[in-house]
Design a protein around this nucleic acid. Structure first.
Lengths: 230, 230
DNA sequence: CCTCGCGTTATCCAAATCGTTTAACAGTCT
DNA sequence: AGACTGTTAAACGATTTGGATAACGCGAGG
């Protein structure tokens, strides 16, 4: 009889010293799946990355399919939760936007593999990703970005920003933050800074996005004032 | 002795009726490689997509590696050439930006698989993509976007746009145009329009990007004028 | 102390699948 | 008829997956 996932029996949290093998498998699988994709990934490579025997993968997760599902489910939930938690709520629109961009880029930087895994899912249909995301949405879990959308909507109602399509604006913000990570090899060719000092490149990027967006959303009140004076 | 790629002997263009098998293989391989990646793609699936026998793949391209290389090389060159050709040169900054965004999105729409294939390459290191791109750049081939960068630089020098980092601005534009395609399954969840009527969604997107960018780049001359009047 | 259970490894196995090769077949051209 | 080309069916070897087995180390508990 093959024992079921031992995680179910570990909650008593014995005094043993298993150096968190399950987490190491998660990390290794995430890395390999993100690069090679669901089908391209080899169990042997995952086992090597985790520094364990291949048979142990079957001990924790019976099949490759279940491993992928677990990695995606676990990673997705943790990713979304951690992300929405790291995005502090601010009062004003300007501060909200700045906090989002800075928090988003910082978070993605720390979870690049998860971002790549999600994108990989998108490339091959996105069935699994869609399922998990809709489940997260229906479960009323906090979806990052919706908070910012609310802020923008309020600001738009108050005339603090121009009349723009909020959904498209939000998509543009996310694109500007996320795309450089997933397209890094291409970005490097045109952005020497991203090669020499990636951290500094990201700081420049944050400032640029906030600057461009704030300028793009600012209401053209000066024009009105000018016309009023004319 | 296995015959070399018959394309080399076909230039006499015999009166035979081979319904362009090579092109069908290219298209099928592009589709499958873009979704499953270099390792994840199966020759059987490519053959099925092309409606041919698996052995015929080896008749045209000796190995899977060479097939991938050929698809990438051929597709990449054709993609870049066609793209830079479809981006008409305009005089003013505003028209240049508009032409770029509209042309870029239209072109990507017609070549989504190639875009996805390139991104897939990025996800697994980007070695092949980097090699082909640097080769294209060194060969002085026209790289899409550089023309727009020149226009923006000139406009910046003439004070027609705000003082911004051109490289980051260009990256933001490309991100805003490209990301929705590669992340489509996710976008669909938040953008109902992208599900119901993708074409109309793209039209909205073009208009939004141009609008936001023009507003974000417009110099705050009204403020100056206002101050001058004061 | 011994024994048991659990995490772990080494090893092996059957079945499926993959990439590749070979031989043969059906046309067309000479 | 013979040669050549595009194509297919079949087969080969290597790899991958899922699964099983036995054994080892080691802490917990009797």
């Amino acid at each position: 009889m093959v024992p079921q996932a031992p995680a179910a029996t570990r909650p008593p949290d014995t005094e043993t010293r298993p150096p968190d093998t399950e987490q190491r498998i998660f990390d290794a699988a995430l890395t390999v799946f993100a690069r090679k994709g669901r089908d391209g990934a080899r169990l042997q490579e995952i086992a090597d990355h985790a520094g364990i025997n291949r048979a142990l993968l079957h001990y924790y997760f019976r099949t490759k399919e279940q491993l992928y599902e677990a990695v995606f489910e676990h990673g997705c939930r943790q990713f979304m939760a951690g992300l929405s938690q790291s995005l502090r709520a601010e009062e004003g629109v300007e501060d909200s936007l700045r906090a989002f961009v800075y928090g988003y880029i910082d978070y993605i930087y720390e979870h690049q593999d998860m971002a790549r895994l999600m994108l990989n899912e998108c490339l091959c249909g996105g069935g699994v990703l869609e399922r998990h995301l809709t489940a997260a949405i229906e479960a009323r879990e906090e979806v990052p970005g919706l908070l910012l959308e609310d802020r923008l909507r309020a600001a738009l109602g108050a005339g603090e920003i121009r009349e723009v399509d909020l959904r498209h604006t939000l998509l543009t913000i996310v694109s500007a933050c996320l795309f450089p990570f997933v397209a890094l090899p291409t970005v490097r060719l045109f952005h020497s800074r991203a090669v020499e000092d990636f951290d500094r490149f990201l700081e420049e990027r944050k400032a640029h996005i906030v600057d461009l967006l704030l300028a793009g959303l600012r209401p053209a009140e000066e024009v009105v004032r000018t016309e009023a004076l004319a």
